[in-house]
Nucleic acid binder design. Structure first.
Lengths: 225, 225
DNA sequence: CCCTTGGCAAGAGCAGTGCTCTCTTTTGTG
DNA sequence: CACAAAAGAGAGCACTGCTCTTGCCAAGGG
């Protein structure tokens, strides 16, 4: 009916269906899911799937983008509470909760890159959403005087950080951006450590441990070195 | 000649040779290296390799243990300098340098776990070596009064941390252990972020950025929340 | 309303994989 | 030195990603 013809609509639906089944397989087989198995589950020939995704890598790319977007919206929706620490912790827990619910998708986006695989440009947009959320919170905290800047950073690193600041939260001092990125790295590291088994046989009180870590990260942001 | 007969020695040499070739393949193909391809490189039938490793997973396990050990000795050898921060930074940089030199081996041990793969007990010993190094440095700093403990931690998490303290650096307050683990997580997160492409198109001054992050982690340890 | 054409699905096929089984050869050792 | 144990080779099974060819079918223009 619309300019996007019936064909296009059916095609989009089929594409979504393939992705849905692939996501199910992802939950059991991880990144080495089989395109043929997905096709079998859909009752179609494996060659037919290639009408929708030119290769297995392209399917994976689609799932990576979806995962980034899902995590991104989760984080964006989680910005609640008042005061910097509460808002930050809220985001952290939402990220961790999502990761615990979708471990293989987390592994897909924050785990080791698939060997022969090169992430295309399309992934960078969705990929930065969660760091953007953190950047925004930190920016607001900075504007509200909740976070001191500390000593300025020079050299190439200073330029890099200034550029990120401009893109993320204009007006925020680069030093703060560095600490925000530190918090984000710490967040991803903590979630990955828990998910990838680095805490096995060591820490049982996972949630408490995570919260402690993220409180440390929040404190790191509030006070300069 | 020895109690370990000639057969056993030849077998050990062959095993090492297979691992060496596999490590070379790891550098190009990552975790999905092909046992058959390794066999081809060695000029032997693929079935012959199964005399040495019962499965591809077992080969991977061997490489994981080797990687943990290589990284562990690197970190242990890097404890130099005087004062907590210097010693800590020295270890951090040695870990990062090793990871940059052996990215796929890093991915093998700190990246997403191989899907159907369960790490056997043999890996836990080598796996804890680097966190042990950090724990020891922090313990010494604590003993030297370079790191205040801060508020005690109760509940299950407190017990967990006390247990880790006992195993790692006896006499160190659990709160400090928590911060040491935080630093370790931050370290792994920073290296993984750099290696897995999370910093692409953002931070060019990688080493400076890393150092800044690790200085933050060091400061985090020195002062309580 | 018909008929063309563009898109879709199916199947066979290729090269490669992990792993098993059987058979033969080698080789250290009692 | 004879022999048993260890090692290697090769075929084979079920699977993979991907390509190519063939047949089909309906959407949309005339």
């Amino acid at each position: 009916m619309t300019a996007a013809s019936i064909r296009a609509r059916v095609r989009a639906e089929m594409t979504d269906e393939i992705k849905a089944v692939a996501r199910r397989h992802l939950a059991t087989d991880g990144a080495n899911l089989s395109l043929r198995a997905v096709a079998r589950d859909l009752g179609m020939a494996s060659s037919a799937v290639y009408r929708y995704f030119a290769s297995r890598d392209e399917l994976l790319t689609a799932m990576i983008i979806d995962a980034y977007d899902a995590l991104g919206s989760t984080a964006e929706a989680a910005v609640g509470g008042t005061g910097f620490t509460d808002r930050f912790l809220s985001v952290c827990h939402s990220v961790r909760d999502w990761a615990l619910a979708h471990p293989h998708e987390w592994a897909l986006i924050y785990g080791s890159p698939v060997p022969g695989y090169q992430a295309p440009r399309d992934t960078v947009g969705p990929a930065v959403r969660v760091i953007l959320v953190i950047g925004r919170i930190v920016g607001e905290a900075s504007a509200a005087g909740e976070a001191a800047a500390g000593e300025p950073i020079g050299g190439k690193l200073g330029d890099d950080l200034a550029f990120v600041a401009e893109q993320t939260a204009p007006g925020t001092p680069p030093q703060l951006i560095a600490r925000a990125m530190g918090a984000w790295i710490h967040l991803c590291g903590a979630v990955s450590a828990e998910l990838f088994g680095q805490l096995n046989n060591t820490i049982e009180a996972r949630r408490e441990f995570f919260e402690l870590q993220m409180r440390g990260a929040a404190a790191m942001i509030s006070r300069p070195l």
